[in-house]
Design a protein around this nucleic acid. Structure first.
Lengths: 290, 290
DNA sequence: TCCATATATTGCATTTTTCGCAAAACTGTT
DNA sequence: AACAGTTTTGCGAAAAATGCAATATATGGA
């Protein structure tokens, strides 16, 4: 007979909100298998079912809701106690080197950094921006401590990944083409601007493939901002991440078309596993979870 | 890096009140070594000292007090939640066989049983009374599920022991001898009634030994009640457990003398380790801890 | 209806953690 | 200085947790 612990409660709490084992497992840096067993143990200890789940859906039971309320309250009090106990000691000082794409530095970074600076005003943040594809390499080579990166299937095992946001891809068309729905598009006529590299490259290629479309390629360009520019100029149509568009000055020159069955990608913070417990890094990751 | 768990909190809470590793370890069925390390882990996680301790004294720090208050509150809420979750299921039914001495059945058992019956009215309790020395044997042979027993050094490993009370020994003298202080006693003159067997036998012998006293023995008798009788009759003086005296009708025929440096014994519940998790037994043990 | 896909769970080998015993270290007392 | 009572530590054994890979199962579409 084992005892309730705060880690299990944390996992439970996250799951109770996400209602998705895979996502919670990813966010909390465990495998789905581990998460599944943690929940099983919890149910064993509470002697009741917390989630009604088949392989397709996860729902919180009445008992689960009770535990959730207990759990949230307790964890919150625990955090507060910790804060009290470490109030003096925990004035974090030092330097954190970060890396992210130009886009991310405008979209997701500001909120994160402003919170961070507010909580830890004595920490210096050295930010480098550049090609998002380099994020992982930069972290691995320790050129930076934390990077904003995209989660891929072959994500290196020695890194941890903390999700920040899910970024969908949208199809954009020149405004003057006057296209507003997916079915308006004739893939034989309209030329397409593909991403030359980066994570969206494979996603887009895969999408064309499953739809048995052989697009007329106008150009393969590097950098999502460039795709927006070319589409805005009327060269063709293309897929870009939602955030890129949201922060583009050319957004009003194009039409957005939501494509339901194209997957986006998971944006998050990444750092070396070995640095996960480093106080400055830990504080940043913690922030991303809230 | 491990996480806070409710077992650690429970151990901590007990220790914070007993301020004695050995006692807490005994009460919570772990070794002192384990307890020590649990506390170390706790301190490690809180990043502060919870107890100032050398090998002679244990004191709760300011941080310790904060954690204690958190801990008590949380554990209490947890218990309540568990009660809510299991409210229907947990109507305990069945039979528990108990064994204890006649004295204990009058002194410590009533409170325990009345609480138990109140909480679990559908549980039948079969009580057998008899020689306290047989307690352990009865439990081992499964003639009973739980017994009130005295904790000894060579307590069997396959049993668990849950303390109920510490029973001091007192020196009693016939009222007419008019003795009220230890130093009034001339061990050359006054004859002594020794327990023939039982746990107090060794304690008393040891006490005489460390004080270099070779008592004049009037008689060795079996059963503490008998000692009280003989002392009351004026045959001599002797040591008996405080509880025995408190429940004796002859208490007013003798004088009590507190002897500071004679140890008493630990009274508690005992049962087979294997039965510890049996619901009916568990409920009883739980009761003894409060 | 059957298949492809997404998702939770389980078997198993490995790693990590915990436990208890015995010995050591420490401290106040005789 | 030896002792007695307590806490702590070293260490080997046992237990628990974890990740990977395989399995089971439900859902939606061809």
């Amino acid at each position: 007979m084992q005892y309730m612990d705060f880690r299990s409660l944390t996992l439970f709490t996250h799951l109770a909100k996400s209602l998705h084992f895979g996502q919670t497992a990813l966010a909390m840096h465990v495998t789905a298998s581990t998460l599944s067993r943690v929940i099983q143990r919890l149910e064993d200890e509470c002697q009741c079912t917390l989630f009604v789940r088949n392989n397709r859906s996860v729902k919180l039971t009445h008992e689960g809701k009770k535990l959730l309320s207990f759990s949230e309250q307790t964890l919150q009090q625990w955090q507060q106690l910790q804060a009290e106990l470490n109030s003096e000691k925990a004035v974090l000082r030092g330097e954190v080197k970060m890396y992210c794409s130009v886009t991310a530095s405008q979209s997701h970074l500001p909120k994160l950094l402003s919170k961070y600076r507010q909580q830890h005003p004595h920490v210096d943040i050295r930010l480098t921006t550049g090609d998002p594809a380099s994020s992982i390499e930069r972290v691995l080579s320790q050129q930076c401590d934390i990077a904003i990166a995209i989660h891929t299937e072959d994500f290196p095992n020695e890194l941890i990944f903390t999700p920040i946001d899910y970024v969908p891809l949208v199809l954009i068309t020149p405004r003057e083409f006057n296209l507003s729905q997916l079915k308006d598009i004739d893939w034989q006529t309209h030329q397409v601007i593909l991403p030359e590299q980066g994570p969206s490259r494979n996603i887009v290629r895969h999408w064309f493939q499953t739809h048995c479309i052989a697009p007329h390629i106008y150009a393969s360009v590097g950098g999502n901002e460039a795709i927006v520019s070319m589409v805005a100029l009327g060269c063709g149509i293309g897929f870009v991440p939602q955030v890129v568009l949201d922060h583009s000055r050319l957004a009003n020159k194009v039409n957005q078309i939501q494509v339901s069955d194209i997957s986006g990608y998971q944006l998050g913070l990444t750092c070396l596993k070995t640095k996960r417990s480093h106080p400055l890094v830990k504080a940043m990751l913690q922030l991303a979870l809230n």
